[in-house]
Amino acid sequence: MLIFSVFKTLTDQTVTVELKNDLCITGVLKSVDQYLNIRLDAIKVQNADQHPHMMAVRNCFIRGSVVRYVQLPASAMDTQLLEDATRRESGKKI
């Protein structure tokens, strides 16, 4: 739930989602659900010329399981809080 919790605070922020098929999509995060499915708006694809099929796509829904990385905006993150949250998360299990 930690990552889900983090993503909840990132709505309406610009994030870059790297998929497992090496597609890199930058867009405004609209919503995330418990499966970490991601909905992006106003998307832009890196190396757009290599992915012409994405040219006309303006928004997308990404299944959580195909995501490799999500690049988060540093300005919208509280690293210390994230550390604490991680500690709590790990503390629950031990």
Binding site: M1, L2, S5, V6, K8, T9, D33, Q34, D78, L81, L82, D84, A85, R88, E89, K92
Partner: peptide, 24 residues
């Protein structure tokens, strides 16, 4: 179902980051 996903009895345990981030 959705609310149960989002909400727990102890938000500071299960939704710590979002809760504290919002309050900060």
């Amino acid at each position: 179902v959705q609310v149960a996903q989002l909400v727990t009895s102890d938000p500071y345990a299960d939704d710590f980051y979002a809760q504290v981030y919002a309050s900060i």
